[in-house]
């Protein structure tokens, strides 16, 4: 009858997977990073997914609190450490506030991983410069641990990270480890120190300028608030980095995370689908204007 004929005709669309239905994950551990940032560690409720789930550094997920909504977070743990997963959450809105009210054992929704990832294949054998600001360390941290777990594949590594104040530095336990690691050049800076602060003061872009890493055979990976990104790109250019040597990961308001809902575009590129990882060459024409 008619229905069978139509079914055959529309067979190419007949896939019953519904990507909007989240997987359930359980919160294992909560680390308070700063007064407004916490990291949640979680695993999947479905034991099969715990074994099967993989992702690449730089990819993101939609976390949801049922009844409150969904929001977008990068997965901040390293793909090389797949026993659990982590997301860093800055309390800025409805969903993030709800995520900050959670306790260990809470059940939340997880969709992902979505988006592209950092180009580890291009970075292999090169000098790496990581430039991060504030909560922007979350995606970088996933990449940095991924790189450090395969340390011999890469040449010199510099990590330049800053926050507004000492209290705003995220992942301090990682910063301590990296500072102690002699194979890394780790520079931590804060915009304004306090009485206890013995370290460097000043913006990340200034720390980068002073450190002046060589652009030869190098890749710079930049992630932070837009104001930091905008001030960092010119410094990298002065240091001789070409636009395709500079990689960043962007953040935009998202709903679907899969290129449908429309709002996260920069020009013809969707941050969720074509990104979130972009080379500066890709977004140069739009960066000063829409980001």
């Amino acid at each position: 009858m008619i229905i069978t004929q139509i079914k055959q005709r529309r067979k190419e669309l007949d896939r019953d997977k519904n990507v909007y239905v989240p997987h359930m994950v359980l919160v294992d551990k909560i680390i308070e990073e700063t007064p407004t940032v916490r990291t949640i560690h979680f695993h999947f409720k479905d034991p099969e997914l715990n074994k099967e789930f993989t992702f690449e550094a730089g990819q993101f997920a939609e976390l949801s609190i049922f009844g409150v909504g969904e929001a977008t977070f990068c997965i901040s743990s390293s793909p090389t450490r797949n026993d659990h997963w982590e997301c860093g959450i800055n309390r800025v809105g409805l969903v993030t506030a709800a995520l900050h009210r959670l306790g260990v054992g809470a059940e939340i929704g997880f969709r992902g991983p979505y988006g592209n990832h950092f180009p580890l294949d291009i970075m292999a054998g090169k000098n790496l410069v990581f430039v991060g600001g504030g909560i922007g360390l979350a995606p970088l941290r996933s990449l940095i641990w991924n790189v450090l777990d395969n340390r011999d594949k890469y040449d010199k590594i510099a990590i330049i990270y800053g926050a507004r104040s000492p209290g705003d530095l995220c992942f301090k336990y990682d910063l301590d480890t990296w500072e102690a690691d002699q194979s890394l050049n780790t520079i931590i800076t804060v915009d304004k120190g306090d009485a206890m602060w013995k370290g460097r003061e000043g913006f990340v872009s200034e720390a980068l300028r002073d450190a002046a890493p060589s652009s030869r055979n190098a890749v710079a990976v930049v992630c932070g608030p837009p104001v930091m990104i905008r001030s960092t790109f010119p410094v990298l250019e002065q240091l001789g980095f070409m636009p395709d040597q500079v990689i960043t990961t962007l953040e935009k308001r998202m709903k679907c995370g899969i290129g449908k809902c429309g709002r996260c575009n920069i020009g013809n590129l969707y941050v969720c689908r074509d990104g979130p990882v972009f080379s500066y060459a890709q977004i140069k024409g739009f960066i000063s204007d829409e980001y």
Partner: peptide, 23 residues
Amino acid sequence: FCFDINDEMIRKQGARYRGWDSC
């Protein structure tokens, strides 16, 4: 085609729905 996704919940029941949004 742009849309928004939102949740509503009263007591222990709720729904996630989507509706048209606009640039």
